[in-house]
Design a binder for these strands. Sequence first.
DNA 1: GAGTTACGCTACGGCCCGTAGCGAAAGCCG
DNA 2: CGGCTTTCGCTACGGGCCGTAGCGTAACTC
Lengths: 215, 215
Amino acid sequence: MVAVMHSEHPSAIPQNGRSGRPRSVEADGAILRATREALVELGWSKVTVGDVATRAGVAKTTLYRRWAGKNELVVDAVAVLFDELELPDLGSLAADVESVVLRFAALLDRPETRTALMAVVAEATRDEALRRRIRTAIVDRQKCLVLEGRARAQARGELPYEDDPAAAARNADLIFDVIAGAVVHRTLVSAEPVDAGWARGFTVLLLSGLASLQR
Amino acid sequence: MVAVMHSEHPSAIPQNGRSGRPRSVEADGAILRATREALVELGWSKVTVGDVATRAGVAKTTLYRRWAGKNELVVDAVAVLFDELELPDLGSLAADVESVVLRFAALLDRPETRTALMAVVAEATRDEALRRRIRTAIVDRQKCLVLEGRARAQARGELPYEDDPAAAARNADLIFDVIAGAVVHRTLVSAEPVDAGWARGFTVLLLSGLASLQR
DNA sequence: GAGTTACGCTACGGCCCGTAGCGAAAGCCG
DNA sequence: CGGCTTTCGCTACGGGCCGTAGCGTAACTC
């Protein structure tokens, strides 16, 4: 198993020395796009590396020079989708939470995301390297949204500033797992829609629970 | 794709007519046990149907007579594990919730469960039949725990009886997704342990949120 | 131009899938 | 008991995909 570093563009890295033909940057984009396209059409289990390469207009060997296998490829292909997630300032914590819940749900509605996310997480239960990749490519980036939302709420006076930084970190992690977990579970396991009504109910539950946490 | 009904013992069903050699009931058990064993050792992606058959001491053809493929097989193999989940009456809603959270987490700690659950959910995003199978074999059975806990809490006077049955059902679904989702996300995505401290914090958040939901 | 690296292409051994065909075994029934 | 039916274990097979190797060519640096 060759270690391939993660990056928006794997081609940016591999050239240890300097000389030689540079890796085609367009190829990376084409491969990732082709991966998402294949995921939509076929689902995780039926996607083959060979097929992705063909769709991307690239030789299979070229693909294998950049990614070690299907898992790594799919993580990178899907990771960029999560960058869409933003936390717009809507003036109140409740509105902010509701909006991010709906945005996250919309993201999970896209077939490439729902399929890939679970499959990759499943594979990661047996693969430490893959777990790290998911962590840096997806989880950590999203956790920032929690911190951002809390900071804003504190600035507004909706939440108290916390004295104990350890407790504050624990709470942030808890909130993150509750929000992301509930949305994912609702969408993928219960297989029911996250609509405005659900988002409202969930937000009410979360926020009043949150208030009592920090008292 | 041949439709195979779900049951604890698939062999109980297939005999359309009557006469002929009956299916070996031990074989079913051996196959399911072998499936779980293989999942622990190899992880989802490396488990092969042929290997499972060999471990079970059964011909591959025999296995294919009962299950259509890897997905169906694994769902059934893992479903029985969820039957362990119970809701002991510990005298208070908080204690009940905390205990079920820890039990659920312990279940997800077992490698065969964590690996299989996510993989099957992932596959189900593209397979309606599989989704139904998961629903009846796993989800619905667990949802009962929520109803049971609520009924007990209401009997204790910890929660009000709800007038609107539709709202009550919505709330139960919400609670279910929040509990199961948070635990799953914490263990499998964030990859951090669900210990007593986390369970306590989560329960506090949930219960105080819950109180405000029904006001 | 010389050196280096990536490219597309082809071909390969190996593994696994899912099915078919066989004779033997295990039940039911007259 | 002998016939009927269905499952059993076994073997064999075509087909698909994996991941790698080897080739000649293309692109870029010094």
